[in-house]
Simulated scan of single mutants.
Amino acid sequence: MYKFIGYIPESAVETVKTALFDAGAGQIGDYSHCSWQVLGLGQFKPLKGANPAIGEIDKVEYVSEWRVETVVPDARLAAVIEAYKQAHPYEMPAYEVFEMVGV
């Protein structure tokens, strides 16, 4: 079992969460669509060669983003990561994956 954490702009949070759940994330026992989220402020600076969905080259951009956490079974991890990348509006979406021990 893995914990998947993604950082999603407010405008896309429900669309991206739906993609994650459809790919197999978020099931705990007899419950589906399980996640936890908190709103924060992300920042990034697109460099030359980037094609940013938000912001301008060489200018720091600040965006309200949701940190969304959910669980992913081993067999669905690759599909969940791919679904996240496809549904997310950013060219290079940030995410983290942690193996859960003892689950």
Rank of each mutant, 00 (worst) to 15 (best):
M1H: 14
M1L: 14
M1S: 14
M1P: 12
Y2Q: 09
Y2K: 12
Y2G: 04
K3R: 15
F4A: 03
I5C: 13
I5R: 14
G6S: 10
G6D: 05
G6Y: 01
G6K: 05
Y7A: 08
I8H: 01
I8D: 04
E10D: 05
E10S: 08
S11C: 10
A12T: 06
A12F: 07
A12C: 07
V13D: 09
V13E: 06
V13K: 09
V13N: 03
E14Q: 14
T15D: 10
V16W: 01
K17Y: 03
T18E: 13
T18M: 03
A19K: 01
L20D: 02
F21M: 05
D22L: 08
A23M: 02
A25C: 04
G26F: 00
Q27T: 12
G29M: 02
D30Y: 11
D30E: 14
Y31D: 03
Y31E: 09
S32Q: 00
S32N: 05
H33S: 11
H33Q: 12
C34H: 06
C34W: 02
C34M: 00
S35R: 04
W36M: 07
W36K: 00
Q37Y: 06
Q37R: 08
L39N: 03
G40Y: 07
G40E: 04
L41V: 13
L41P: 08
G42F: 00
Q43F: 10
F44V: 11
K45F: 00
K45T: 13
L47Q: 14
K48I: 15
K48R: 14
G49E: 11
G49A: 11
G49H: 12
A50F: 00
A50C: 09
P52R: 04
P52C: 05
A53V: 03
A53W: 03
A53H: 04
A53F: 02
G55W: 05
G55C: 05
E56R: 05
E56I: 00
E56L: 05
E56T: 04
D58W: 02
K59P: 01
K59I: 09
V60N: 03
V60Y: 05
V60I: 14
V60P: 06
E61G: 12
S64V: 00
E65Y: 04
E65C: 08
E65H: 05
W66G: 05
R67Q: 13
R67W: 02
R67K: 15
V68R: 04
V68Q: 00
E69T: 12
E69G: 02
T70L: 01
T70A: 02
V71Y: 06
P73K: 15
P73N: 15
D74C: 09
A75S: 15
A75N: 15
R76G: 10
R76D: 15
L77H: 09
A78N: 13
A78F: 10
A79E: 11
A79I: 07
A79F: 07
V80F: 05
I81K: 15
I81Q: 15
A83N: 07
Y84M: 10
K85E: 06
K85C: 10
Q86S: 15
Q86T: 14
A87H: 02
H88I: 03
H88Y: 01
P89G: 02
P89N: 01
P89Q: 00
P89E: 09
Y90H: 04
Y90W: 05
E91C: 03
P93K: 03
P93H: 09
A94G: 14
E96M: 13
V97A: 06
V97I: 11
V97W: 02
F98K: 13
E99M: 09
M100D: 10
V101L: 15
